[in-house]
Amino acid sequence: MFAYIIRRVIATIPVVAIVALFIFSLLYFAPGDPAAIIAGDQATPADVERIRASLGLDRPFVVRFFEWSWQVVQGNLGVSIFTNLPVSKMIAQRIEPSLSLMLLTLTFAISVAVPLGVLAAWKHGTWIDRLVMMFAVFFFSVPVFVVGYLLAYTFALQLDWFPVQGYTPFSISDPWPWLRNLVLPAAALGGAFVALIARITRATMLEVLSQDYIRTARAKGVSQRPILFMHALKNAAVPIVTIIGIGFAGLIGGAVVTESVFAIPGVGRLVVDAILRRDYPIIQGVVLMLSFTYVLVNLCVDLLYTLFDPRIRY
């Protein structure tokens, strides 16, 4: 087990290195000149040239890549071109809102989707089943920003139940403002995940319900509910955990859009702003961090398998 973990951790290194090289060269060859943007609308070309030189943007690719990599290995993600602030600090400021949004979204999605999936499997073949599945396909098909605007229009503007935008940092003494700000974004972002997880749960439950031991339990006279929740759900945990691992990238992607619709100061908005401004160090830092997180999450998911399913051994 321990050797397995070590092996897996080492295996992530080439992946992250490939991402680093990829994202660095991508942005190196990108057009759009940060120096011109910094200098502003009314600067002369000579000014732009001097700013470019002072930022070190005029040096060759290899030099810049190795310099950057060396810094990254030492934990230094560089300094934002525009704000002169350390990238790691800018990312750190943005982690709490993004993490809050994602955790709340997952909590919401799982707590809605699992009962829905179980219900659909239980009432397999009835109109309830079909309704749940139609609902799932529907939410899978509507873009997250459309759901976001619809929710904001209804629940914030018309009914005034929740604020339209913003983020309040979490506090133990009064978590309500934090929650109020996140309800609509989490619901908007969660739609697609409800759909995904509900489908997985249903499928797994159907498979498990047809297994011999369940039939045996039923035959022994164990009533429906304990069967569903004790036996079946335990087995359903594995695919659900898997989907969280796979869906993590989608969750980040969705968070980017959701954060911009609801003006949440998260990592996603940071990187979209940076891309539109061509603030290379931020883009590189965030993408590297996110893919590293993705790799870690999937590592954890693999390890969780052993927890939920004792049959899997490494």
Binding site: P14, V15, V16, I18, V19, F22, I23, L26, L27, F29, A30, P31, G32, A249, G250, I252, G253, G254, V256, V257, V271, V272, I275, R278, I283, V287, L290, S291, F292, Y294, V295
Partner: peptide, 24 residues
């Protein structure tokens, strides 16, 4: 497969935005 893993570990929409920033 490592390259594919690398590509998959970048959230699709971010990767697409970054690629679009490359070109007109």
């Amino acid at each position: 497969m490592r390259v594919m893993d690398g590509l998959m570990s970048i959230p699709g929409i971010l990767l697409a935005i970054a690629l679009m920033a490359l070109t007109r």
